[in-house]
Every structure is written in C-alpha cells, then in structure tokens.
Amino acid sequence: MTDSQKQVPHWQGHRDRLRGKLLNRGPDALEDYELLETLLFAFIPRRDVKPIAKTLLQRFGSISAIFSADPDALTQVKGIGESAAAYLKATQEIGLRASRETLQNLPIISNWAALLAYVRTQLQHETREQFRVLFLDKKNQLLSDELMGQGTVDHAPVYPREIARRALELHASALILVHNHPSGDPTPSRTDIDMTREIIDALSPLDIVVHDHLIAAKQGVTSFKTQGLI
C-alpha cells in the first residue's frame, strides 16, 4: 500500500459508493440514515457522518422530526454544529416552499393528498399550538397560508374578526382552518368545535366559505368535514 493510499480516509470511498447508489438506483434505494448521510456530506465534509445520521434518527425518531427540531436541539447531537443545524432547517423550508408552490398552482379541493402532506410536514412536530388559515380564491387555489395565532402546548388564541378582516383584504372566497395538537392526538376538543363554529358564523355574512378545519398531530390529521363537524 502506498503512502497516498494510507492517507485516504476510510469514509471517503463510502461517500462515493453512497452517491453512486443514489444516482444510479434512485433515492428510494437508500435507507433513511443513508439519505441523511448524503445530505450531511455537504455540511460536514471531513468526517464519517454515518454515526451522526444514525444518532439523529435515534434521538428524534424520524426524518420529519429531525427537520422540525429546534436548532438548539439539533446542536445537542455530537457532530452537529450551528452551520449543519442551519442547513437542516433550510432544507426543511425548501421542502415546505416546494409543497406550497404545488398547492398554489392547483385547486386544493381536488388535491387533498397534497394538502394533507403539506399540513403534516408543517405542523405535526410543532411543540406549541399554531393556528393557521389557508385563504383560497374563487378557483380554490391558495392565495396565502398565514399564521393567525400561536400559543402554548394546548392553546393558541384565535380571533374570528381578525380572520374575517384578513380574508376581505385578500379577496378570499373560501378558507381552510388548520391547527396542531402538540399532544400527538388529532381528536378535536369541544373548544376546537365551538371555535370553528364562531369562525363560520363570522364569515357567513361575507359569503366566505369554510371548507374544512384540519388538526395535525404526530398520530395523523383529522378533518372536521370528514368527521361531520362542518
């Protein structure tokens, strides 16, 4: 073995093989930790990232949970510094914006699977309640996705008049209410049901329709319309 061969890190050949596997066989051929490794190659160029990828999955439980984690939590994993945490959060945002662009170019009502995927990605791992509103035009295409309330682990303030005011500003014809349950259980509470009715009553005189109210959580997404609550 030559001196130059001895100096090649053991993980360098692994990187080349993993990149080749992705390019030749497609990303579906890679395990979750291998996809993370491939991503981390660019962020952490001079060390073996397989242990880091596996630790991230063990610590957070899933790829979606990793991307949704706070930067401070990410940097608690050995090998993840501020730069790598920032890149992971940027990757999450790229995915969200790509999903949002898809929704903006298609009628949401006829692309329900894409909507549910977007809602899950955005909210299922949030540790505080968020209340968001998807404002739609006459063709049921997305005008805007806006945060209308953010609160604690089990409550987010919501103001029906503020939602109505914003809908008029955007010339929205319909909307979809969205919020999350950090507890993990997407079952609507009595408060959720009553609040939804208040919003519907505030928008009804304005001829603005509430198509649905979605609750996102780790255990899934609940649709008020599917449950017969709207």
Rank of each mutant, 00 (worst) to 15 (best):
K6W: 06
R197Q: 10
L74V: 12
D185K: 02
A73I: 07
V178A: 06
P9S: 15
E169G: 06
L56A: 13
T2D: 10
V119R: 13
A98K: 06
F60T: 04
E34K: 01
L18F: 06
K225A: 12
R59I: 00
R47M: 13
G149N: 14
S204E: 10
S4D: 14
D3V: 11
L36A: 07
P182A: 05
L175H: 00
Q92D: 10
G151K: 06
V8A: 11
A73L: 11
L30V: 07
P51S: 11
H125C: 02
F60V: 01
D207R: 08
G20V: 04
E146S: 07
V178C: 00
I208P: 00
K54T: 14
V210D: 00
T121K: 11
E126F: 02
I208A: 02
I80H: 02
K78P: 05
R15I: 06
I80N: 06
D48N: 14
H10I: 13
T196G: 14
G61R: 05
A113R: 13
T222R: 08
S223D: 00
L56K: 04
Y87F: 10
A114K: 15
L134V: 07
T226Y: 05
S204A: 06
L103E: 02
A84Y: 07
R120S: 12
H213A: 10
R161G: 07
G220E: 03
L168P: 01
L23C: 08
I193N: 05
A156C: 12
K218L: 15
A216M: 01
T75K: 07
F224Y: 08
T38Y: 06
F43P: 10
E34H: 07
K21L: 14
L229Y: 12
E82C: 05
R97F: 04
P71W: 11
R46Q: 12
T55C: 13
I163C: 01
I208N: 02
T191Q: 03
N140Q: 10
S68R: 07
Q141Y: 11
F131M: 08
T187E: 06
G151W: 10
A156R: 03
